[in-house]
C-alpha cells in the first residue's frame, strides 16, 4: 500500500476495537506490512488472540485491555504501547458500536449516553492521549471510524449512533486543521454496512434493506475497510486530511 516499500515495517499502530471486525482486519493488514500493532480492546482475550495472530503474520503484536470510555485506561494503554514499542506512528480509533437498534422515540438516556460515550468520547480520549506523543515526535496519522450513517441519519433504527458518528466526522475536521502545521493528519472513514459482528444487533430485514441500498449489492468486507485505513496512513497519501472517506459501494451519499 505505501509509496515506499517497507514504509510500514517497524512502524507502530495503536488500534482500538482490535479484537474483531474492522479492527481485527486492520491489525492483520498492518502485520502483513511488518508493522507493530498495539491491539487494544475491552475484550482482552480477543485482543490477545489477534495480537498472537499479528505475530504469526509478520508483525509484532501487543495486547492491551482498554475501555475507551475511561480516560485513565486510554492514557495507560497509550503509555504502555509507547513503552513497549518506543513510538506510535498511527492511531486508528475504531472501537464503536450502535449498541442496539432503536426507533427514535425509544432511545432512552442510557442508550444515548452509552452510544456517545463509546463512539464520541472514546475517540476524543484516544486522540487527546496520543497527540502529545505525536507532537513530540513531529508527526503522525490518526484515522477515526465514522459511518455512512452520518449523512443518512439512521432514521428508524439508530439515530443515537448516526448522530454520534456525525460528531466524529466534525471532531476529525477540527483536529486535522488544528494540528496540520505539526505534520499530523487526521481523517475519518465512513463505511456503509460492513459484514462484521457489529451487525449482530441488526435484524435480517434491516440487513437486507441496507444491502439493497448498496449499488455493489453486498456489504463491505472488513478487509476492504482496513486496506483504506492503511492507504490513509501511508506516504502515498500526504495531502488528504480532515475529510471523511466514504467506503460505501456507491450508495447512500445524497
Amino acid at each position: 500500500m505505501p509509496k515506499t516499500p517497507d514504509f510500514f515495517a517497524r512502524k507502530t499502530l495503536f488500534l482500538t476495537g482490535a479484537a474483531s471486525g474492522i479492527g481485527e482486519a486492520t491489525a492483520y493488514i498492518f502485520a502483513r506490512e511488518g508493522a507493530n500493532v498495539i491491539c487494544a480492546d475491552i475484550d482482552i482475550e480477543g485482543a490477545k488472540r489477534v495480537s498472537h495472530e499479528v505475530n504469526q503474520r509478520g508483525g509484532k503484536g501487543l495486547a492491551i485491555s482498554c475501555d475507551v470510555t475511561e480516560r485513565a485506561k486510554v492514557e495507560a494503554a497509550v503509555a504502555a504501547g509507547v513503552k513497549h514499542f518506543g513510538n506510535i506512528d498511527f492511531q486508528f480509533n475504531n472501537a464503536g458500536s450502535a449498541i442496539k437498534r432503536s426507533k427514535f422515540l425509544d432511545i432512552d438516556d442510557d442508550l444515548f449516553e452509552k452510544a456517545y460515550d463509546l463512539n464520541v468520547k472514546g475517540v476524543f480520549y484516544g486522540m487527546q492521549a496520543v497527540l502529545p506523543h505525536m507532537l513530540e515526535r513531529g508527526g503522525g496519522v490518526i484515522v477515526n471510524t465514522a459511518s455512512m450513517s452520518y449523512i443518512r441519519g439512521g432514521g428508524g433504527h439508530s439515530i443515537h449512533y448516526a448522530s454520534a458518528k456525525g460528531a466524529v466526522v466534525t471532531m476529525t475536521m477540527g483536529v486535522a486543521r488544528e494540528f496540520v502545521k505539526e505534520n499530523i493528519r487526521c481523517v475519518s472513514i465512513s463505511p456503509a454496512a460492513a459484514d462484521t459482528h457489529f451487525q449482530d444487533i441488526s435484524s435480517n430485514d434491516l440487513k437486507e434493506s441496507m444491502t439493497n441500498d448498496i449499488p455493489i449489492g453486498r456489504m463491505a468486507d472488513p478487509e476492504e475497510i482496513a486496506e483504506v485505513v492503511q492507504f490513509l496512513c501511508s506516504d502515498a497519501c500526504p495531502y488528504i486530511t480532515a475529510d471523511t472517506i466514504k467506503i460505501s459501494g456507491g450508495g447512500g451519499f445524497r
Partner: peptide, 24 residues
Amino acid sequence: EMVLFTCSDACEFINADTLYLTGG
C-alpha cells in the same frame, strides 16, 4: 498515487463517490 490506489484491489468498495485531496 491516489489514482493507483483507487484502481487497486485494495479499494474495491469505494465507488461513485469523489475523493477530496485538499490538504484539509
